[in-house]
Amino acid sequence: MGGEIQIRSGSLAAGELRRAVSEHVPGAAVQFEVREPASDYRVGIDATVVVAVVSGSASVLSALITGIFSLMAARRSGSANIVIRSADGRSIEFPADTSAEEIPRLVELTRQLDRPSIELP
């Protein structure tokens, strides 16, 4: 599964989200970019997103998802949910305090999604 994964947050601006996620993802295997939406229309909310550029390996995707869990734990967002959504609308929703033992299963489910995006509280 290589490619790009959009990451959005309901509580952090894109620049803050980029810094926060990159601090929790070890190594340089994932690159983070802040991107403006492709549309010329203005919206009432910040539509800027963080894009994680991920290589094809499951270990890199696992590092990204583990880093997101670390970020959520640091922000004490345990009661909130993280949603991973595919381009066709399928989604996986799970609590931010999901155990480390469940991460490999979430990585495998995410690898099966077409152009996944991650939505954080």
Rank of each mutant, 00 (worst) to 15 (best):
M1C: 05
G2F: 08
G3Y: 06
E4S: 11
I5V: 14
Q6R: 12
S9Q: 11
S9V: 11
G10M: 10
S11P: 00
L12G: 05
L12A: 07
A13F: 08
L17T: 05
R18W: 03
R18Y: 02
R19E: 15
R19K: 10
A20P: 01
V21K: 00
V21L: 01
E23K: 12
E23Q: 14
V25R: 01
P26H: 06
G27R: 08
A28H: 08
A28M: 02
A28P: 04
Q31P: 01
Q31H: 10
F32K: 04
V34F: 03
E36A: 11
S39H: 08
Y41R: 12
R42Q: 15
R42F: 15
R42P: 07
D46W: 04
D46K: 01
D46S: 07
A47Q: 12
T48N: 04
A52W: 07
V53P: 00
V53I: 13
G56T: 08
S57A: 07
S57K: 10
A58L: 10
S62A: 10
L64G: 01
I65H: 02
I65Y: 01
T66Y: 02
F69H: 06
M72Y: 04
A73H: 13
A74I: 08
A74D: 15
S77Q: 15
S79F: 12
S79E: 15
N81G: 07
N81W: 13
N81Q: 13
V83S: 06
V83K: 03
I84R: 01
I84E: 03
S86D: 15
S86P: 13
A87H: 13
A87Q: 14
G89V: 10
R90H: 10
S91W: 05
I92Y: 01
E93C: 07
D97H: 07
S99T: 15
S99Y: 04
A100C: 00
E102F: 09
E102S: 10
P104N: 04
L109G: 03
L109Q: 11
L113E: 09
R115P: 00
R115T: 12
P116G: 10
S117Q: 15
P121H: 02
P121W: 04
